[in-house]
Simulated assay, not measured.
Amino acid sequence: MLEKRKWLLLTFYTTAGVMALERTCTQAGLPGRIVPVPRSITADCGMAWRCEPSLRQQVVPLADPNEVMGIYELEI
């Protein structure tokens, strides 16, 4: 079984919002990926952007604040 790690998760109201952040992060050279939202939290579109917590100060400003539903640091 895989060991749990702490991740930064941004959840979104729409799929377009998470895909826009993926595109922006890729262009900026910031690693991360789209993942299903864990059961412990909810999001309207069911997808989240996952990256290292150390990237919080770089990633959060790139996300559209009207699209972000929540920002979490979770062990998953």
Rank of each mutant, 00 (worst) to 15 (best):
G70C: 06
E22R: 14
R39M: 13
A16Y: 13
L21V: 10
L74N: 05
A20L: 13
G46Q: 12
K4N: 08
A63D: 00
P36D: 11
T42G: 13
C51T: 15
T11F: 02
R23Y: 14
P36L: 10
T26M: 08
T11C: 04
R56D: 01
L21G: 02
D44M: 09
T26A: 10
C25Q: 04
E75G: 04
V37W: 00
L55K: 03
M1S: 12
M19F: 10
P53S: 08
M47F: 14
L2N: 11
T42Y: 08
L9H: 02
I34A: 05
R23D: 15
E67H: 06
E73G: 06
T14C: 06
V35F: 03
S54C: 06
P65N: 11
R33P: 01
L74C: 08
L10K: 00
N66D: 15
T14A: 06
P31Y: 05
P61G: 09
T24G: 01
L8G: 00
Q57D: 15
S54A: 14
M1K: 10
L21E: 05
S40G: 10
V60D: 01
S54P: 01
P38V: 11
T11G: 03
G46L: 12
F12Q: 05
W7I: 03
G29E: 10
V59I: 15
L62A: 08
A28F: 09
Y13F: 12
E67W: 03
D64H: 06
R56V: 00
A48Q: 03
I76Q: 04
L55H: 08
L62M: 15
E3L: 08
I34E: 06
L8W: 01
T26P: 01
N66Q: 14
V18W: 01
R50G: 01
C45Y: 04
L9A: 01
R50D: 02
E52F: 03
G32A: 07
A16H: 15
R50P: 00
E52W: 02
T26R: 13
K6C: 01
T24P: 00
E67R: 12
P65K: 05
L10I: 02
D64F: 02
N66K: 13
M47W: 14
F12S: 03
C51W: 04
R5P: 00
N66R: 12
V68Y: 00
E3A: 06
G46I: 11
R39A: 14
Q57R: 12
R39K: 15
M1G: 13
V68M: 02
G46V: 09
W7E: 05
P38C: 07
C51G: 05
G32Y: 03
V60S: 00
A28Q: 14
P36F: 07
T15G: 09
K4T: 07
A20R: 15
R50A: 11
T15Y: 06
R33W: 07
Q58N: 10
G17T: 09
R50E: 12
G70A: 12
E52M: 07
G29I: 08
E22S: 13
Q27L: 14
Y72A: 07
E73P: 04
G46N: 11
R39L: 14
T14E: 12
Q58P: 00
K6Y: 03
A28T: 09
L74E: 05
G46S: 11
L30Y: 11
N66C: 08
A20N: 15
I76C: 06
M47S: 13
A43Y: 01
E52I: 04
G70R: 05
R39S: 15
P31S: 09
R50W: 03
K6D: 04
I71N: 03
C51Y: 04
I34M: 13
T26V: 13
L9G: 00
